[in-house]
Design a protein around this nucleic acid. Structure first.
Length: 829
RNA sequence: GCCGGAGUGGCGGAACAGGCAGACGCGCACGACUCAAAAUCGUGUACCGAAAGGUAUGUGGGUUCGAUUCCCACCUUCGGCACCA
């Protein structure tokens, strides 16, 4: 525990010197005292305004890393600030404990994932306590506790009863290494890799559980009333992927309707062929005997292709003619129907109308297979287009041409007229499509909340009655060579009786995606042991919604979209209220290694917070994390940089505690007090706006000023005492231990953390003189000290009388004089 | 390719409404203390120049009395998406 500094400190035996700053002693002392006094355990109090501060709950990976500190300590500082400004603050913590890493680690070590997880929880809890955060530990939840996942299952049942959960046999993304399906959001990049392990995913047809999240696409695009970062809103908007256009029904020659979605209804007359996804249900019927062999071969190849790693996006188009034809409902033309893998079954209707003249993909396809290209849009101001000369599609909007009755429609009206025409003639209507899909929640893994469903030969799919929840995981983890879910391998677990008819039945062996657990934990925190409902309604009414939510932006399209969906779905089930669960969101950046790269064990650039706490104390580690960069951008760690922060806290200690001679003059004391109140003004703003780096630098600046004032005899004066008190109050949210210790040593009442936030004394903060900036042609030529509130005329006179200005003007007449009242004069010649 | 963020001294960064660029810290240099070292304290530190002064916020343009800040184009970099009809 004792670092080099403490040893050297102990060597310096000087009987007159004050006791040294020993964080390792004072930090443990105060942490114990705050816990004993329940300092951070708010009571519901209708007369006091509440503030729910939430930080994303950590996954139980085993060790708290510096990134956790970076995410959590500023959230804590803000919560502490809010508490001091008079709010009743709730700041809980818990553990996201289900999930694949636990299970993979368990397989590696031949243990039960439960053991691994709960051992990690123990360790992480102790590590968290060293940070000195103002957590309300009464509220701790562990998502793998039956007491918790009972309610995760309950939520599933509410969604099921309200037709928001359903089962479907569908092709899904499957990770062969993790042996489980993944939600679309958990498949990353062009290579379609598993988000957890990096293995390329494959497509698999499985019976799976989904939530109807896509039903909420439109609502999820609405961010009104919530203060979230633009980047997150942008990512979610892109992810939901709304496009507007038309649904158009073509008829095959056999008379089968074939619906397509298009964003360009204005190009309807330019359709020269159609393309279906190879998996489209109509392909079989359309295929003629002559084309049968080619079509089957292509479909097989497409199937295989999606099973192996996908090729580059810009690879050459492939496809096969089915032999079938459709009729263009607008032009009446007979057009061939092809299949190609650039058309995806998972978007729109899995079929497209191809307009090669005005869509680049269709253009490439048409050129490759010698299909006709028909120009039907003439962009304004460009020469008539000759299809034979085209090298790429013309995607710009323009006037409709070669479009029968709609030819000549001007660019602005094409969409409306084309849709109206389709509606009139009964073959189409306006339509909206979203990229956002239903949320696949089934996981073929052991370590998750079991889906509370029972299959009965007699009654079919049956919900486990609420009073029988939770459906608990078995104690034994059954190993299986083939990577089969241990719930299937377990000899007895899945066998049960039907809750409805009492006959033999089997349990669903899939467990739920862990994002399900983290979609509602903010509600369970409010009453973690409440027995009759997922939350105590009285607590919910008081504390919800979350006022500030902090965490990493990597969750933008996963957790942060799921939890919004969850809240809206729960609202529609009549359980929650309001449209959004989290009013304000702030994302921290990432702490990089000293080499500027992402920290990783293989790079050997990982910074261990435990070592830092042992060496410098938590307050210094916190201070450095606040200080080294703006919180939202993050940046590289620096082991020499943190030295500056430990020096700073040692100076705070000695400047406030070591007595010094008095005798300062009044002007100096006024200046000191002014600086303190000005600092208070900017720091109050910075706490509110998450600008922690400038909080620390402002405090350093003020300390420098205090050091100079102390040398000039300010110590012990009333002004000094006022400034010292202000200093500790401003320091308290960022460095809670040293501020509490010094507060006590200065004889102030316990605890500093329950003191009201100080008010700026505007009189004291007022400048006695200001610097007037004098420019000639926009270049700085002079600075003149003047009284605040100086009149414009006087500013002009002073500027024109400046020696530097006279020299620069050299007799030239000013053409114009710009005056920014009380700040600047710019003389233009 | 598309969408979004970021480019400022040797380094991390500040400048919150278009008005003193480089706060604060690291590092470095010099000085004090010390037999000495560490720690601590003090002073200095964008670049060019002996100085007067000049040049500087990724690059090139523009708007303005005045631009790190606003506009246009480009370059680099980080994140997201990626045949989405």
């Amino acid at each position: 525990m004792t670092g080099i500094f403490y040893l050297t400190g102990a060597c310096m035996i000087d009987p007159t010197a004050i006791e040294h700053y020993r964080p390792e002693e004072i930090e443990l002392k105060w942490q114990a005292r705050w816990a004993a006094d329940h300092l951070y355990e708010p009571q519901r109090d209708p007369h006091k305004e509440k503030f729910y501060a939430l930080t994303m709950l950590p996954y139980t990976s085993g060790d708290l890393h510096i990134g956790h500190w970076y995410a959590i300590s500023p959230s804590d500082a803000r919560a502490r600030f809010k508490r001091m400004t008079g709010y009743n603050v709730f700041f809980p913590i818990g553990f996201d404990a289900f999930g694949l890493p636990a299970e993979n680690a368990a397989i590696r070590h031949r243990t039960n994932p439960r053991e691994w997880t709960y051992r990690n929880v123990e360790r992480m809890r102790e590590q968290l306590k060293t940070m000195g955060c103002s957590f309300d530990w009464r509220s701790e939840i562990i998502t793998a506790d039956p007491e918790y996942y009972r309610w995760t299952q309950w939520w599933f049942e509410q969604f099921y009863k309200n037709d928001l959960a359903y089962q479907k046999f569908a092709p899904v993304d499957f990770c062969p290494s993790c042996n489980t399906t993944l939600a679309r959001e958990q498949v990353k990049g062009d290579d379609r890799l598993c988000d957890r392990c990096g293995t390329p995913v494959i497509r698999k047809d499985l019976n799976q559980w989904f939530f109807r999240s896509s039903k909420y696409s439109e609502q999820l695009l609405n961010f009104e009333g919530i203060d979230w970062p633009e980047t997150v809103k942008n990512l979610q908007t892109k992810w939901i992927g709304k496009s507007s256009g038309a649904a158009v029904t073509f008829l095959t020659e056999d008379g089968d309707p074939l619906e397509v979605f298009t964003t360009r209804p204005d190009t309807l007359w330019g359709v020269t062929f159609m393309v279906l996804s190879p998996e489209h249900p109509l392909v079989d019927k359309l295929t003629t005997p002559e084309q049968r062999q080619a079509v089957n071969a292509y479909r097989e190849q497409a199937q295989r292709q999606s099973d192996i790693q996908r090729e580059a996006v810009d690879r050459e188009k492939t496809g096969v003619f089915t032999g079938g034809y459709a009729i263009n409902p607008a032009s009446g033309e007979r057009i061939p129907i092809w299949i190609a893998d650039y058309v995806l079954m998972s978007y729109g209707t899995g079929a497209i109308m191809a307009v090669p003249a005005h869509d680049q993909r269709d253009f490439e396809f048409a050129r490759k297979f010698n299909l006709p290209i028909k120009v039907v849009i003439q962009p304004v101001g460009s020469d008539p287009i000759d299809p034979a000369e085209m090298t790429e599609a013309v995607e710009a909007h323009g006037e409709m041409v070669n479009s029968g009755p709609l030819s000549g429609t001007p660019a602005e009206e094409t969409f409306a007229r084309a849709i109206a025409y389709a509606e009139e003639h009964g073959f189409g209507h306006e339509s909206v499509n979203y990229r956002f899909h239903d949320w696949l929640i089934s996981r073929q893994r052991f370590w998750g909340a079991p889906i509370p469903i029972v299959y009965c030969n007699h009654c079919g799919t049956v919900l486990v009655p609420e009073e029988q929840l939770p459906v608990e995981l078995p104690d034994e983890y059954i190993w299986s060579d083939k990577g089969v879910n241990p719930l299937i391998s377990h000899p007895t677990w899945k066998h049960t009786t039907c809750p409805t008819c009492g006959g033999p039945a089997t349990r669903e062996t899939d467990t739920m995606d862990t994002f399900m657990c983290s979609s509602w934990y903010h509600m369970r925190y409010l009453s973690p042991h409440y027995d009759g409902y997922p939350f105590d309604p009285a607590q919910y009414d008081y504390w919800m919604p979350v006022d500030t939510y902090t965490g990493g932006s990597e969750h933008a399209t996963m957790h942060l979209i799921y939890t919004r969906f969850f809240h809206k779905a729960a609202r529609d089930c009549g359980i929650t209220r309001g449209d959004e669960p989290m009013l304000q969101l702030r994302n921290q950046g990432m702490v990089l290694g000293e080499d500027g790269e992402k920290m990783s064990k293989s790079r050997g650039n990982v910074v261990n917070p435990d070592d830092l706490v042992a060496r410098y104390g938590a307050d210094t580690v916190r201070a450095y994390l606040f200080f080294f960069s703006s919180w939202e951008s993050g940046g590289p760690w620096s082991s020499s940089g943190i030295e500056g922060n430990t020096r700073w806290l040692r100076r705070v200690w000695s400047i406030l505690l070591e007595p010094a001679k008095g005798g300062a003059e009044a002007g100096l004391l006024r200046a000191l007090r002014r600086k303190a109140h000005q600092t208070l003004r900017v720091i109050t703003y910075d706490y509110e706006h998450f600008e922690f780096n400038t909080i620390i630098s402002s405090l350093m600046e003020l300390l420098n000023e205090m050091g100079r004032a102390k040398n000039a005899g300010a110590y012990g004066t009333p002004e000094w005492n006022e400034v010292a008190e202000l200093y500790l109050l401003m320091l308290a949210p960022v460095c809670p231990h040293i501020s509490e210790e010094l507060w006590e040593r200065l004889g102030k009442p316990y605890s500093i953390h329950t003191q009201p936030w100080p008010q700026v004394n505007e009189d004291a903060a007022k400048d006695e003189e200001i610097t007037l900036i004098v420019q000639v042609n926009g270049r700085l030529r002079d600075r003149i000290m003047v009284a605040p509130g100086i009149a414009n005329d006087e500013m002009r006179a002073k500027a024109l009388a400046s020696e530097a200005v006279l020299k620069e003007l050299d007799g030239r007449e000013p053409k114009k004089i710009i005056i920014v009242p009380g700040r600047l004069v710019n003389i233009v010649v």
